[in-house]
Design a protein around this nucleic acid. Structure first.
Length: 240
DNA sequence: TCCCTACTCATTTTCCGCTG
DNA sequence: CAGCGGAAAATGAGTAGGGA
């Protein structure tokens, strides 16, 4: 594998703010097999990975909220997974070890803290925190969970507002007279006027824009979506 | 416009050193 | 000495840039 010492490309990645491997650490999170399976299942259902889930909770929730969560804990003494090496000098040899999750995250975190963060993600996914929203005064644990939920909602609202601003700034201005010509259709789809993109490109562009501007979406715009549909219709009729 | 190359990052697999 | 855990190595996916 490459060693991450690239020059130009590395600079570009850092400038885009994607991050760099040197400032991440690989964590081995030992946990019960039940907890491990639940987190993996959650990750698969969300089309994410364990690192994404842990990162989301760590970013969105105050440290005190995560620390206040009960630690799901280490696996029981008889709770072990067997791993059989598939290659190398020890191929075929079975290894018994504690069930684990692995993730690459920023350094400075502890395993119990990450287990707590993942348990919050699990509780959210199962709707446990939402249930507690209705009865915040019942006890302090529930109050903590409501605070956590509110923190999540607040951060999410902020993010949506920010994304709306970005999408609005980057999107086409709706045409006052609607979409009537081929050039106008190309403009709406963000394609150069006079160009002749094939249907594959047009469909791909339509799908990308529809994902952003569909009225049911968080960034939705009924006017833009109507003009995107009209543009698609013109380019489809016109053939290419 | 397409393809190839170079690169980063995430995930999976493996191994080595520590501990009981 | 075997089990265990941390982390390195291997592998795969994704993306940008440049040249044909």
């Amino acid at each position: 594998m490459t060693n991450g010492e690239g020059d130009g490309g590395d600079r570009q990645v850092q400038e885009r703010g994607i991050g760099d491997a040197a400032h991440k650490k690989s964590y081995t999170i030992t946990c019960s097999s039940t907890f491990r399976d639940a987190i993996i299942g959650l990750a698969e259902s969300k089309r994410a990975n364990v690192g994404d889930i842990a990162r989301s909770v760590v970013l969105l929730f105050p440290e005190t909220i995560i620390a206040a969560r009960p630690d799901p804990g280490e696996p029981a003494r008889d709770d072990r997974e067997t791993v059989v090496l598939k290659s190398g000098a020890s191929a075929g040899k079975p290894w018994r070890r504690k069930p684990r999750l692995q993730a690459r995250l920023a350094p400075g975190l502890t395993i119990p803290f990450l287990r707590r963060a993942l348990s919050i993600a699990l509780a959210l996914a199962r709707g446990h925190l939402l249930l507690d929203l209705a009865t915040p005064e019942k006890n302090s644990q529930r109050a903590l969970e409501v605070t956590a939920q509110n923190a999540l909602l607040s951060a999410r609202t902020e993010e949506v507002t920010r994304l709306r601003t970005i999408v609005s700034a980057l999107s086409f201005d709706p045409l006052s007279g609607g979409v009537e010509t081929r050039d106008q259709a190309l403009f709406v789809l963000g394609l150069p006027p006079g160009s002749h993109p094939d249907q594959r490109v047009i469909r791909a562009r339509f799908r990308a824009l529809a994902t952003i501007h569909h009225p049911d979406g968080e960034m939705g715009s009924h006017v833009r979506m109507s003009q995107i549909n009209a543009a698609m219709e013109i380019l489809r009729r016109g053939g290419n």
